[in-house]
Amino acid sequence: MLDVNGTREAHLQAFQQAPALFSAPGRVNIIGEHTDYAEGFVMPAAIDFETIAAISPRTDGQVVIASQNFNETVTHSLQQLPEKARHHWSDYPLGVLWALREKGIDVPAFSLTLKGDVPLGAGLSSSASVEVATISALLSLTGKEIPLPEMAQLCRRAENVYVGASTGIMDQFIACCGKENHALLLDCRSLDYKLAPIPANIAIVISNTMVKHSHAGGEYNTRRAEVEEGTRILHAHRPEIKFLRDATVDDLAKWGSEMPPDVLKRTRHVITEDDRTVAAAAALEAGDLKTLGRLMYEAHASYRDDFEGSCPEADILVDLASKEAGVIGARLTGGGFGGCTVNLVEEAHATTFIENLRKGYHAATGISADIYRCHASDGVHRIAE
Rank of each mutant, 00 (worst) to 15 (best):
N208D: 14
N208A: 06
M210F: 05
V211Q: 07
K212G: 04
H213I: 15
H215Q: 09
H215N: 06
G218A: 10
T222V: 13
T222Q: 10
T222Y: 00
R224W: 03
R224D: 05
R224H: 10
R224L: 05
R224Y: 06
A225L: 02
V227D: 02
R232I: 08
I233T: 13
I233G: 00
H235M: 12
R238T: 14
R238K: 15
R238E: 09
R238L: 13
P239R: 08
E240D: 15
I241M: 02
K242Y: 08
L244E: 08
D246E: 13
A247H: 11
A247K: 13
L252A: 08
A253N: 14
K254L: 10
E258L: 09
E258D: 13
P261C: 08
P261S: 08
P261R: 03
D262S: 12
L264A: 09
I271V: 14
E273R: 08
E273A: 04
D274Q: 13
D274M: 11
D275L: 12
R276Y: 03
R276M: 05
R276G: 03
T277I: 04
A279E: 11
A280P: 03
A281W: 02
A281R: 04
A282M: 07
A286Y: 00
A286Q: 14
K290F: 02
T291M: 05
R294W: 00
L295Y: 03
Y297A: 14
Y297K: 14
A299Q: 06
R304K: 15
G309P: 01
S310M: 08
S310E: 04
C311S: 14
C311I: 10
E313V: 01
A314E: 04
L317F: 05
E324W: 00
A325G: 02
G326T: 09
G329T: 12
A330M: 04
L332D: 05
F337L: 09
G339Q: 01
G339K: 01
C340E: 03
V342P: 11
N343K: 03
E347L: 06
A348L: 07
H349G: 00
H349F: 00
A350D: 07
